[in-house]
């Protein structure tokens, strides 16, 4: 049977201001980050209008300095976009409240509310065999990214990011 999960109000559940944030972490928005994140979500170069909206959202939502851990993770994926799918998988599993996940979610929200991309976010009905097949493929893809991502995440957390 399912488990009960008591939930705290957002203000108490999330802390974005642990001590030790680096100067880099003070950056609320970096154009490179916007391109890397939105390209990852979209699979294509994002239109300028979407980048601008993502920038505005960052300014409003992430005004507080990031923690050192969050800043390190953001820096890592921005410099190595190939690692983003894996680290997203690992963060979703192990650090769902991380700044990386929150920024990606903002990116997804911005895309979902843009008419050119809404179709990707509307429900899709498929036959049972196709559902099973697509479910299995998605499961495999997630499993692979999660395994690699968890290794990468422990490296980043341990500061194993030699530039």
């Amino acid at each position: 049977m399912v488990k009960v999960r008591p939930v705290m109000p957002a203000s108490r559940a999330v802390s974005t201001s642990e001590p030790g944030g680096s100067a880099l972490a003070e950056l609320v928005f970096a154009p490179l980050e916007a391109h890397v994140f939105l390209r990852y979500l979209l699979g294509a170069e994002p239109p300028a209008e979407v980048v601008e909206r993502y920038r505005a959202a960052n300014e409003k939502l992430f005004a507080e300095p990031a923690s050192a851990a969050d800043a390190r993770l953001l820096d890592y994926v921005t410099r190595r976009p190939w690692a983003l799918p894996m680290l997203d998988a690992a963060a979703a599993f192990r650090r769902p409240d991380s700044l990386l996940r929150r920024k990606l979610l903002v990116g997804a929200a911005v895309l979902e509310a843009t008419p050119d991309f809404t179709a990707r976010f509307l429900p899709q009905a498929v036959s049972v065999p196709r559902l099973v097949l697509r479910g299995a493929l998605l499961g495999l893809s997630v499993a692979f990214k999660l395994v690699v991502g968890l290794i990468l995440l422990s490296m980043v957390e341990a500061g194993g990011d030699e530039r």
């Binding site: 979500l41 699979g43 979703a92 976010f121 559902l131 697509r134 997630v142 990214k145």
Partner: peptide, 26 residues
């Protein structure tokens, strides 16, 4: 209420998360 609110609750990478939710939402 839009998909991104469900994505927030799902322990999935977002690329796959969007596809899973498209199938699951109905």
């Amino acid at each position: 209420l839009l998909m991104f609110k469900l994505l927030k609750e799902a322990p999935l990478p977002l690329r796959e998360g969007v596809q899973v939710m498209q199938l699951l939402m109905p």
